[in-house]
Design a protein around this nucleic acid. Structure first.
Lengths: 231, 231
DNA sequence: TAGTGGTCTAGACCACCTC
DNA sequence: AGGTGGTCTAGACCACTAT
């Protein structure tokens, strides 16, 4: 019995209702004896199931079957250049705008950027970029960047995408990602050559470093773009 | 040194370019000695980093820093009832259609349902459901379901959502999930009370059990819906 | 074939939490 | 205060795969 077999067996008992949702299952010691393996092996199996959202574990309280089944899915958020080239297309990047200014309050608030009297304090670097696949618009990127994380002089963001530079050089700690569907809108529509009413998938990411905010970015993907789970 | 400290140290060396992307890092044995811990502890740290997409590990070949940085994000795919109730709203469900028929070829193909001569062989159960939050449309669900996984008589899908019944009773093994942005369209727009051109977020899921396909489902979310990462 | 990661064991200590 | 999961160790064997 390896840990994967243990995991499968536990899962099947849950499905078969031998262990009902919300109920406590036997402790690691007991399961180790039943399956004839060491406690570490049982621990590995149960830890995986907890990570998958099937079990909830607490010291002293024991291990419970999750009350409401939640599926958990993992997605890769690739560097756009790699994504385009992975499709066998030529990658291009066009820097539409690069300026230093005060971010909108909504974005500053989301990043934890200082706000005073309803206005953001201090300027950030604002980049507007178009990513191209075989010369055609692939994604539109609007980014606000903490200038404090950049070297002097700044990297040439007309040559390397900001995201690619950042993931390689700035240690990020946490990040939020959200997907939504929106109409392309006037500005983005013009940049991508789309009717403003076209439905587009939008990714918004917010990234923080050790102590300071790093970047806020809004990616508008070309129509037909899909985000898929990995394994 | 616990495994989390090891993980942090390894990560910081990668960020600092001490170990460059694509390069092989020292083996577990060597790192264990350097950090003064057992190999199992190093293994735990490196395994976590590999799962996060930062490292790539292969037996004999050793451990490499991932060549192209890919961020990996995890999302919870909740049961809709729990999601609505979690917002403090009243959940409702309305079964719009329930019929047994042959699925479209595209869907059959995706599920691995038998196809012969350009047509799906054998019928599936087709459900069209509207999920309500405080009486207002929250999501529209179109589902094709393998009748072989259902008991006789079938559950009352006008009372319990198919998804909720399935996750509790049918052992699924694998599943694909994809997000995209689309226009609501005539049929769904009518059901949800939306203009057909309204941009909506669409989730498509394909689920398989031990050997047989279980279900294909297409969820159309109300405008403004966002999918967010967890932790 | 040999080197690397993957897994397992038996035992131990500890941190956290419920009781 | 005591039981439970979280982690660590030292050693071992195995599976994969590059060479």
């Amino acid at each position: 019995m390896g840990w994967e077999e243990i995991r499968a067996e536990v899962l099947s008992r849950i499905r078969a209702r031998a262990w009902a949702p919300g109920a406590v299952i036997p402790g690691e010691e007991a399961l180790a004896e039943e399956f004839g393996v060491s406690r570490a092996t049982v621990n590995r199996a149960l830890t995986e199931l907890a990570r998958a959202g099937v079990l909830e574990r607490k010291r002293k309280a024991g291990t419970r079957v999750a009350a409401l089944p939640v599926r958990r899915a993992t997605f890769d958020i690739p560097v756009i250049r790699a994504e385009v080239q992975g499709r066998g297309q030529a990658y291009g990047i066009r820097l539409l705008r690069e300026e230093i200014s005060r971010p909108p309050v909504a974005i500053a608030a989301q990043l934890g950027w200082p706000i005073l009297g309803g206005e953001a304090q201090g300027a950030m670097l604002c980049l507007e970029t178009l990513h191209l696949a075989d010369g055609r618009p692939f994604a539109h990127e609007l980014r606000w960047l903490n200038p404090g994380v950049l070297p002097d002089p700044r990297p040439d963001f007309g040559a390397v995408s900001a995201n690619e530079w950042l993931v390689a050089h700035v240690p990020f700690v946490t990040g939020d990602i959200a997907f939504s569907a929106e109409a392309a809108g006037e500005e983005v529509g013009r940049a991508m050559g789309l009717d403003p009413a076209t439905p587009v998938l939008v990714t918004e990411r917010c990234t923080w470093g050790e102590a300071a905010p790093v970047t806020w970015v809004r990616l508008t993907h070309a129509p037909g773009y899909r985000v898929k789970t990995v394994v």
